[in-house]
Nucleic acid binder design. Structure first.
Length: 743
DNA sequence: GGCATGTGTATTTTT
DNA sequence: TACACATGCC
């Protein structure tokens, strides 16, 4: 420890205090000056301390669930800063932006918020975005590129599929979502299409020619329109690292790289890291192969195993002491992983003893399951465990649908993570499309969408208008930079194309809206901007732009959606988020890279409620923990998902998923499964089928659970005997009983 | 060419 | 159940 402290002192970065090194000196000063304490080294166990204080060079930290990984990484950041590394030369790559924020926040508590705040923290995609806005030009990427989210990308593929006519007349051709995931997987795994199809999409093999043609057109189209999809962000970052002119400049930005959730990175990401570390290998990756749950995104555990080979001289540290869960919960978790075909990490251990075993609840049907969950949530709430310390986890987003209704009915506020996001809602996409035209006038998809907002304009008219504006022409110069080409927006305002009479009025309104948002003329005529060319300085503030677009859009919106009164809250929400931004580009980008998650229409907006329950897909629950965890639908076909059981690897991944769910619990774990599902097999019938308990809980593992049955087996109408607490006669009797008799 | 209506179907997980 | 696709009418 002494040694560690001494070592931590020798290169103080902009040191506000003298650089003493002896423990005696430090102890004295530390007592008088809080600033001299080393809180990031406090309360760490030996393994954590080792990881935090490792010197330069590559390191692999194998960190099981709940072993204090976040604390270790945050402490490492604090330690590095304290050791003299400049915060903005530390790159912290995490799986979600939320995780990055949390670690930087914790590091900030240790070394000061302002200092830690300049650490480069974020997802691979967010960091790629940042780097590409700075260095992209060097690889011919204009800095004004637009990022497509998944559904944008799928829509573009859809457009191309229709244009190419590959799907016509034939039996069913892969859906746009399928095509996108094939594309994404091919790119991310860096595998030939055919191999990928054989392995993961065998039913699409016959269409390989058409698929290839679509991919060609898709790539070409993105390039012309300066659009990047999620995968492109990684590819272009990788290109920065491979390109002679930029490789050194990009890599030199950082002295230390830390990567969280390394088991869920794919080959492109691994290659990026190798590229970033060509000159110096100060890289620490943290991961747990037992928690690898993103193979559908082409993540591969192989990255963890290959790490020591890729980076010779790697220090390996294993964290296996679990601080999160009680012994009985951990025993169950270990038993679940114990059946895995392959297993690399050791079992976890804990000294948090408890008499409370996890509970397995067999429910009559889904309604009973909902009821049981709600009742237990309330019981714990009454025991003093707030809703924020409780979570309900499930395999797929719609698994919570019935529960959401029940929670709303009982006025239990909740916040749902995972599933359809706010920005994927059609009405939000409509608003964003208009904003995106302003940002990138060559964004075909946004034009296409915006045009079709107008009544009387369908795909054909939209295409014609876009053609006239030259939206997807490659323009006079060969450069892909929009500013070098005739701008479709300028053309629209100066020389608007003709539209069908039915659409004329709305079309004019759209033009006026775009003009106002650009700020060329109008909006502030009183300020007299003269004949200034249109540019960013002239444009009204973002919030005014949103307001203007809303003004245009609201009548259309109300016409178009029959539940507009519910959805209108989302528009308000959008305006609220926008209020935090000054730059339109930042706003659009952030919304794409870190979309706010929609809450249920039925629930109160969570920001109004202080205490709310968390509903989450297991994927989205990664890295989180709660005192009480309820896992619902633990039936075969749900967990593991029917979709995943086509091969062994799929089942194994589902097992890890279940393991992740179980290890989120600190003190109480409830696993529910409904005995009976309606609409199994035959759809639209009253038929029901009987489910089976998930295969991940065989008898031997079940023995570690307390087992209960919920509901009645005879009839729903019959109540259990002896549970009545009121008797109708007891109140009536009061009417004639004497006071003495009542006592 | 747009739009309303009807029919069928396929259903994960996320940056 | 919600969404994609086809059909037929304006």
């Amino acid at each position: 420890m002494n040694d560690v402290l001494a070592r931590g002192r020798h290169r103080l970065w902009r040191s506000p205090y003298p650089g003493g090194t002896t423990k005696a000196w430090m102890t004295t000063v530390a007592e008088s000056l809080d600033i001299m304490s080393t809180p990031w080294l406090d309360r760490l166990n030996d393994a954590q301390l080792k990881a935090v204080t490792l010197g330069d060079g590559p390191a692999l930290v194998v960190a099981g669930a709940g072993t204090g990984k976040t604390r270790t990484l945050a402490s490492r950041v604090a330690h590095l800063i304290h050791r003299g590394v400049q915060p903005d030369r530390i790159l912290l790559l995490t799986f979600t932006r939320r995780a990055a924020g949390e670690m930087v926040r914790r590091a900030g508590q240790l070394v000061g918020r302002d200092v830690a705040g300049s650490v480069w923290g974020g997802t691979f995609h967010a960091v790629a975005n940042r780097l590409l806005r700075i260095h992209g030009r060097a690889i011919n990427l204009p800095e004004s590129f637009t990022i497509m989210d998944q559904s944008d990308a799928a829509d573009l593929i859809h457009l191309i599929r229709n244009e190419l006519g590959v799907a016509r007349g034939r039996r069913r051709f892969p859906r746009k979502e399928t095509l996108l995931s094939i594309y994404s997987r091919t790119v991310n795994a860096q595998q030939p299409l055919e191999q990928n199809l054989q392995r993961h999409f065998p039913w699409c093999l016959d269409d390989i020619k058409g698929i290839g043609a679509i991919f060609d057109a898709y790539v070409e189209r993105k390039q012309r329109q300066v659009l990047l999809d999620y995968d492109d962000l990684l590819l272009f970052w990788d290109a920065l690292c491979q390109n002679v002119g930029t490789a050194t400049r990009v890599a030199d930005r950082f002295d230390h790289i830390l990567v969280d959730e390394y088991q869920d990175t794919n080959s492109v990401q691994a290659r990026i890291l190798r590229g970033m570390c060509r000159a110096k290998t100060n890289i620490m990756v943290v991961g747990d192969d037992a928690q690898a749950i993103y193979s559908f995104r082409a993540a591969t555990i192989q990255n963890i195993f290959d790490f020591p080979n890729d980076f010779p001289g790697t220090n390996v540290v294993t964290l296996d002491c679990n601080y999160r869960s009680t012994v009985p919960i951990l025993a169950a978790a270990n038993a679940i992983m114990g059946q895995a075909k392959k297993r690399y990490t050791k079992e976890l251990w804990s000294d948090r003893s408890s008499g409370q075993r996890p509970t397995l609840l067999t429910c009559e049907d889904e309604a009973q399951q909902c009821d049981a969950v709600c009742r237990r949530i309330i019981t714990h709430l009454e025991q003093g465990i707030p809703l924020t310390e409780q979570a309900v986890l499930f395999r797929t987003s719609h698994h919570s649908a019935q529960l959401e209704i029940e929670l709303a009915r009982r006025n239990i506020p909740f916040h749902k993570f995972g599933g359809l996001k706010f920005v994927e809602a059609a009405h939000i996409k409509d608003m964003l499309a208009i904003l995106r035209i302003l940002e990138n006038p060559y964004d075909e998809l946004s034009w296409f969408r915006s045009c079709q907002l107008l009544t009387g304009v369908g795909p054909k008219t939209a295409a014609r208008v876009m053609e006239q504006l030259g939206v997807h022409k490659s323009g006079p110069t060969k450069s892909s930079d929009p500013s070098n080409r005739a701008n479709p927006l300028a053309l629209l305002l100066s020389n608007p194309p003709d539209v069908p009479p039915a659409a004329r009025e709305q079309f004019a309104a759209l033009c006026a809206t775009l003009r106002d948002c650009l700020g060329t003329n109008g909006m502030r005529e009183d300020e007299d901007n003269g004949s200034e060319p249109r540019d960013a300085h002239d444009a009204p503030p973002l919030s005014a732009q949103i307001e203007r677009i809303t003004q245009f859009y609201e009548p259309i919106f109300e016409e178009r959606y029959d539940n507009a009164h519910i959805r209108v809250r989302d528009l308000e929400q959008l305006a609220k988020i926008a209020a935090r931004y000054r730059s339109r580009q930042r706003f659009i980008t952030d919304l794409t890279l870190d979309p706010p998650r929609s809450t249920s229409d039925l629930a109160q907006p969570p920001f109004l409620e202080e205490d709310y329950l968390t509903l989450s897909t297991i994927h989205s629950a990664k890295g989180c923990e709660w005192k009480v965890v309820h896992i619902i639908h633990a039936a075969d076909g749900m967990i593991p998902s029917d979709m995943a059981v086509v091969d062994d690897d799929g089942v194994e991944e589902e097992r890890r998923l279940f393991y992740v769910a179980v290890t989120r619990a600190k003190d109480w774990l409830y696993v529910y499964w409904p005995l009976r599902y309606y609409h199994i097999g035959a759809r639209r019938s009253d038929a029901h089928g009987y489910a089976q308990l998930t295969r991940f809980l065989p008898k031997a593992v079940c023995a570690l659970f307390e087992q209960r049955t919920v509901g009645r087996t005879v009839s729903d109408e019959l109540s259990e005997p002896g549970t009545a607490t009121t008797n109708p006669y007891s109140t009536i009797k009061k009417l004639w009983q004497t006071p003495e008799a009542q006592r």
